[in-house]
Design a protein around this nucleic acid. Sequence first.
DNA 1: CGGTATTTTCGAGTCAAGCTCAATAAAGGA
DNA 2: TCCTTTATTGAGCTTGACTCGAAAATACCG
Lengths: 242, 242
Amino acid sequence: MAIKTVNPETQRIKLERKERVILEAARAVFVEHGFDGARMQEIARRAGIGEGTIYSYYESKAELMLSVLQQFWDGLTLEAEGVMASVQAPDFFGGLRALAQYHLNTVILNSDFINLTFALRRNNSEVSVSRDHLRHYVAVFDRLFLRGQDRGELRADAILWQARDVFYGSLEYSARSIEMTMEAERSAREQGPVVEDMVALFRSHYGAVQTTEAGDHATVELLSSKLDQLSEKFDALAKRLS
Amino acid sequence: MAIKTVNPETQRIKLERKERVILEAARAVFVEHGFDGARMQEIARRAGIGEGTIYSYYESKAELMLSVLQQFWDGLTLEAEGVMASVQAPDFFGGLRALAQYHLNTVILNSDFINLTFALRRNNSEVSVSRDHLRHYVAVFDRLFLRGQDRGELRADAILWQARDVFYGSLEYSARSIEMTMEAERSAREQGPVVEDMVALFRSHYGAVQTTEAGDHATVELLSSKLDQLSEKFDALAKRLS
DNA sequence: CGGTATTTTCGAGTCAAGCTCAATAAAGGA
DNA sequence: TCCTTTATTGAGCTTGACTCGAAAATACCG
């Protein structure tokens, strides 16, 4: 009977499910022991398959790690987009605060994965993969920033990638610092101030100028030339009077 | 004869020299092939010694790498201090520009070493070592910043470690971005603008509030002096007319 | 269902590299 | 010169990523 004929999708689905199982086991082991500490044998055991089977799905341990990282970054991107969508206040700085909060938290929780993303870069030639995933992730910030510029909340001459570097770079570095000091001295250095300072920094450096006092070079020169003109008129008047 | 008696320092000096030779060879091989790609055999060959000898100086490959990193960061710290000492203009923003330029350049040239510093953290228990060396390195910035605050060039309520995170974090992230885009598209994204933007950012966010925020000091003073001159002329004329 | 072709799984074996250790050489001291 | 101590060595040990031939599972056809 034709009904008995297995749907051609079935096998593919089964393979995909097994791939997911491998990926899940790999992720757990990598998180638990790091890249070098992870044993392929343990990954196979946790996935309930033979060690050799992994190699019919992934070329090498590094490629497996890369797939895990891929999945990881995709997850982050989705989460970040979710955070941005759920922000009530639709203004730039509100969005920035939410994104900064989310990112800082994420980076602290998954610092090992973040590091591995860059540590693996040199060895493997398939660099472009992780590069694309980074790009997708930071695109969340890019959209927020460009919308802020469109709305006039940000200076029109602000350069996107410089702002992006400041945003992600500072938060990443802060996360490392927090992690370090947290271990030793459980001192100050909370997350809150870091996020607030980031918002304040964007407000003062990239925020649109409210009054003329923060005017750009052009306005200053305009004033200067007007003063010069006035001074000349004054001199002319004084000469006539004398 | 007593003269023949070897100075007790001799052996220690010889050992130290050999240690330096090993470190030098190791550094070269690590730079050339990365941590995983480096072969202990090759390091031994380049140092002109047997492979086993390395292990009477260093416990493991990781510890050897750690020593190389230590030497590396110490070198950076010295260089950074040298750069700061050789800056003619003793003002904060001049110093910041020089330090940013140096750091960005350094991070681009030695990105693999920088990454390894953080990648090794998780595995080895001797974390504190590299942490101290990082601390020494960033202390160069700390001194500059505190002096700037003392002189009133910077806001008194600015928080040191937040500024530090922004400075080093942004530059490190920029370096990675530059490196990435450089490989693919040899597009814009030069180093110059990054450094200048960093200085401008510090001026607007951490700089002491002047009468005007933007516009550099010189232009503002120019306007001020012109107004003063005009005022004097006016007074003179008024006195003559009365 | 039976037989055959194809695909998938497997784990024992290979290989490479970090590391050990017993033997050897060098240095120091009397 | 002989003995003690220290330094050096490289042949193996160990471990872990990866291979491969065989076997099990699956698909295909009459």
